[in-house]
Design a protein around this nucleic acid. Sequence first.
DNA 1: CGTCATCCTGACCAAATGGTCAAACATTTT
DNA 2: AAAATGTTTGACCATTTGGTCAGGATGACG
Lengths: 207, 207
Amino acid sequence: MKNERPKTRIQRKNREAILEAALDVFSSEGFRGATLDQIAGAAGLSKPNVLYYFPSKEAIYTELLSGLLDTWLDPMRGIDPDGDPVGEIVSYVLRKLDMSREFPRESRLFANEIVQGAPRILESIDGPLKSLVDEVAGVLQSWIDEGRLAPVDPHHLIFSIWATTQHYADFDVQVRGILRPEASEHFDQAAAFLSALYRRALAPAPK
Amino acid sequence: MKNERPKTRIQRKNREAILEAALDVFSSEGFRGATLDQIAGAAGLSKPNVLYYFPSKEAIYTELLSGLLDTWLDPMRGIDPDGDPVGEIVSYVLRKLDMSREFPRESRLFANEIVQGAPRILESIDGPLKSLVDEVAGVLQSWIDEGRLAPVDPHHLIFSIWATTQHYADFDVQVRGILRPEASEHFDQAAAFLSALYRRALAPAPK
DNA sequence: CGTCATCCTGACCAAATGGTCAAACATTTT
DNA sequence: AAAATGTTTGACCATTTGGTCAGGATGACG
């Protein structure tokens, strides 16, 4: 049962516009760097009007954040315990990389929050995030035990996947500064590189 | 020839204290999130006194940033073109990881800046950073050509090393939230994991 | 000890910013 | 077409914040 109450269509539309604008602003300026005027401007509304839909700046921010965590973890839920280990992991990597390509602002929003100590979503990390990760780590470990995956620390494997894939969204400026391509061409290179990296590293030793 | 002019020892001491305090505050709050009062407080000085040593908040920030870039790139300069390829890369990874362990605030400072589009150090990325990276990429490529390193995209290899190592500093809260250890124990696990990962992935196919 | 340069501070300022509110304006509902 | 409900805004406010400044305190040094 969804907790959405789109009283009127105009209300739905404006809340939508505000969240969209806020994502833009928060992701590129951080929470403190963003101003209500910026958000209001980007949403095509006046500042008091924004505050008519949300009680405060912080409320907009946390709504964005909490609404996103789920989507953000989706790729991980797609890992099939009954599939081919290396294949499953590589396709997880590619799904995660795709999220960086499709939703860089969302990635940066999280990055900003976490780098600064995640003052507003610590609970979410300790709670749902940790349990999902532990669950997946369990699957990885069982694959290792069965000799179908190279023996590496499951948690750190997950970290490395997050790090390498999110890097292309979060540090986009740096990547773009070092590689030349204007287009998102480097995402395809990254996909090729990361597949190869993990395929080579994770293939179990032949018995 | 150093551009340091420590007119008096008190001047040197206070500038030092301010930069140290600023590193603390900027790295955990971001540029806009940090306030002069916070910095002054952390440095044990009054706000006007801070402004006596630095012309503005931004001046403190950029001085920090520019003074750090060099140190930050040092591990990369230690790569020996005449060494054993895989060994050189793995020890580069470990050096970089050590920097994350020893200087997490510095890492977060950069992360904050880059995630937000690096508005104040774009030149440094396009300039010295790019050339050093290209140089190292050249070395990697020559190793590949000689068949002493698995054929992977050199630039993306470098990105993956940055991503995986800096992750432990920048996303420390997340890592700590998922792993239990209070101590910096996970850095040792990470070292073991990353050595194994890159060793396995980069070993050239036997001829 | 006197004087000169350096160092430090309280008081102050202008701009920015999150947020409020009463009143005007729209839209539905009856 | 009222009445009721929902939406928008200009004017306003309190606080925070980067920064200034005149003068006082504290060295350094002959």
